[in-house]
Design a protein around this nucleic acid. Structure first.
Length: 588
RNA sequence: GCGGCGGUCGUCUAGCCUGGUCUAGGACGCCGGCCUUCCAAGCCGGAGAUCCCGGGUUCAAAUCCCGGCCGCCGCACCA
């Protein structure tokens, strides 16, 4: 029986210490994976590449923050997760099986129970005496099953209820105002965050792909929808097309994505937000940098029924993979102004942005003014008091007070003021700024899934069962291997010298094995891009070694003093055989 | 969560149906040594498996039965 590619990749990943199921000694717990030594290095490199592409290259207007995993419940009330991340469940009191309440009712009574409230579900179960379908036992009352993990902050009481975040996004929304101020109140503005999130999935069953705890890398990108300032869409994204499978196509049963420039997709209203289009373009380039060819990835538009509650439009970035056919590695949601709006309501904070108008808005209104000289004459020394009281009211408010009374004297805070000191006028006001709620485009990546596709696409099998993990050199966990052609003390001493020299700069390993071939094979299998070999020439003259490229197996002979320079250039993706050093062709 | 199938050294597996000959066999890998002037294939030696966990049937269980855990497939659920 031959193994599938997924199994081969996972075997390698587990055997060589990239990752493995968590809690193994206690029988395991699905939905959790540990990262091993190589896995941590690989993940860090992927995260760092993301940071480079999404944050560093956009640092004029994208900044990274870090916020808590544990949030007071109010945050996810406001975000809508508490409401929408819920299922209703009942438990059998005798066999303790758990069922989805609405599905159970539908099954037993044949009626539609979708969307019913907790009370309604309870009522139906009681009235129709619905019992456990397995053992006939009595059912508990309906309970909410939340996909959010719950805990308490401090002592156990309901006011202290907290949730662990299922996305990092809320941290950015909550801090929008602060970061907006820090960034000189300029839009567009991206706030990035990389961190762990948790979701209490009902039954995750896809190994390291569907995790209950995983790392998300996302940007909440805020912009003025009336003036998106998205010139980058044309400037940086006019060179390659992206593949999109639209919702319309999917409804019609089509499976072949269209190929289109991101800017055209926006102009043709296939993508509703220009910034969503921009970040999708960058996402395509980023995934390509992980070693996934452009034609192996496409964006699938979610149907309205598939979208999250906050989204106006969502595209999932899919990568073709062996096992599942396609795998979602990132989500691109047009969150519109939903989240900020909700936080404004729930927190009563001002989370608006300010827009400078090109032309002032002219507002005509009727206001009441008062004659200060007349008041002075009438009130004498008390005039100061009167002015103070009047100052509390705006001209519009004063007009209302005047209009609400027919008397000759109006009363303000116990002070009687004759109507004669007031005049009513029509004024024109010029308004140069207006408040608005920015729109949000959100690109969001799952780090562990990116890790998996990186491994799968790097995995190559040569004849004879030899495996090469052809990781992009920049992402390789260990950059340099050092091999001695034969294991004699002089060779080993030189290896050790070079090791000590390079380990300040790179992750390096001294390769061990029965033969030079086995050492290369091991290095290839864990994706080490360059192997330095110490041969007889190295020992005799003591100053040169060879450097072998993992993917071409070609070697160059290099002075030891030049090693760091050669490796640096090589890691950037340059062909080491073009540096002018003697080249040695591989012999099999 | 439901239904079906599965779980034997690190890996892939033999054995299970037809219980005892299994103190569980092999291959690769691993460890020690020899050999070795460049791509895993030579020689010698060695370690490594509570046969997923718990319970039951039986004189006797890797093997049969039940429950649990984990995995795979389908359904359901799913930022």
């Amino acid at each position: 029986m031959s193994l599938t590619k997924y199994e081969k990749v996972m075997n390698l990943a587990i055997r060589r210490g990239f990752l493995w199921p968590s809690f193994e000694i206690y029988g395991g717990q699905s939905g959790f994976y540990d990262l091993g030594p190589l896995g941590v290095l690989l993940k860090n490199n992927i995260v760092e590449l993301w940071r480079e592409v999404f944050v560093k290259q956009h640092q004029e207007f994208v900044v990274e923050i870090e916020t808590p995993i544990i949030n007071p419940a109010i945050v996810f009330k406001a975000s809508g997760h508490e409401e929408h991340f819920t299922d209703y469940a009942v438990e059998c009191t005798s066999c303790h099986r758990i069922f989805r309440a609405d599905h159970l009712i539908e099954e037993v009574l044949g009626t539609n129970a979708e969307g019913l409230s907790e009370e309604e579900l309870n009522k139906i179960i009681k009235e129709h005496n619905v019992r456990c379908p397995v053992c006939g036992g009595e059912l508990s009352t309906v309970k909410k099953f939340l996909l959010l993990f719950q805990t308490y902050i401090g002592p156990y009481s309901l006011e202290n209820l907290a949730y662990l975040r299922p996305e990092t996004a809320q941290g950015m929304f909550i801090n929008f105002k602060r970061v907006y101020e820090l960034m000189k109140r300029r839009l567009p503005l991206g706030i990035a965050q990389i961190g762990k999130v948790v979701r209490n999935e009902i039954s995750p069953r896809q190994g390291p792909i569907r995790l209950r705890e995983f790392t998300i890398m996302e940007i909440e990108f805020f912009y003025d929808e009336k003036n998106p300032q998205c010139e980058l869409l044309d400037e940086r994204c006019s060179d390659n097309k992206i593949y999109i499978l639209t919702a319309e196509q999917r409804i019609q049963g089509e499976t072949k994505p269209i190929s289109i420039l991101p800017s055209e997709a926006y102009k043709e209203k296939i993508i509703l937000s220009p910034w969503l289009a921009y970040w999708m373009c960058i996402a395509g380039k980023f995934v390509n940098m992980l070693g996934i060819p452009l034609e192996k990835t496409y964006f699938e538009e979610k149907l309205p029924t598939e979208r999250a509650h906050y989204s106006k439009q969502t595209f999932d970035q899919m990568v073709l993979v062996d096992k599942w056919g396609k795998l979602e590695v990132s989500g691109h949601a047009y969150r519109y102004s939903y989240d900020l709006e909700r936080h404004i309501v729930f927190s009563k904070s001002d989370l608006y942005a300010v827009r400078q108008l090109k032309e002032p808005l002219i507002v005509r209104k009727r206001v009441a003014k008062y004659d200060k000289v007349a008041i002075l004459k009438l009130f004498g020394k008390q005039a100061g008091d009167v002015f103070k009281k009047l100052a509390k009211y705006s001209p519009e408010e004063l007009l209302k007070i005047l209009e609400s009374s027919q008397r000759d004297e109006i009363e303000i805070e116990g002070m009687k003021i004759p109507r004669t000191v007031f005049t009513v006028e029509d004024v024109e006001e010029k308004i140069w700024v207006e408040k608005f709620i920015p729109h949000v485009a959100e690109p969001s990546f799952g780090a562990e899934r990116l890790m998996y596709i990186t491994l799968e696409y790097a995995y190559r099998e040569l004849e004879g069962g030899r495996v090469v993990l052809s990781l992009p050199k920049k992402l390789a966990p260990i950059k340099v291997g050092i091999a001695t052609l034969i294991d004699k003390p002089q060779f080993e001493a030189l290896a050790s010298r070079i090791y000590n020299m390079l380990k300040m700069k790179y992750y390096v390993v001294i390769l061990e094995g029965d033969s030079i071939g086995k050492k290369y094979a091991y290095a290839d299998e864990v994706g080490i891009p360059f192997v330095i070999t110490i041969d007889y020439d190295s020992v005799v003259e003591g100053s040169t070694v060879t450097v072998r490229d993992r993917d071409t197996r070609k070697q160059i002979r290099v002075p030891i003093a030049d090693l760091a320079k050669v490796i640096d250039l090589g890691l950037e993706g340059k062909d080491i055989t073009e540096f002018g050093y003697p080249v040695i062709e591989p012999k099999d």
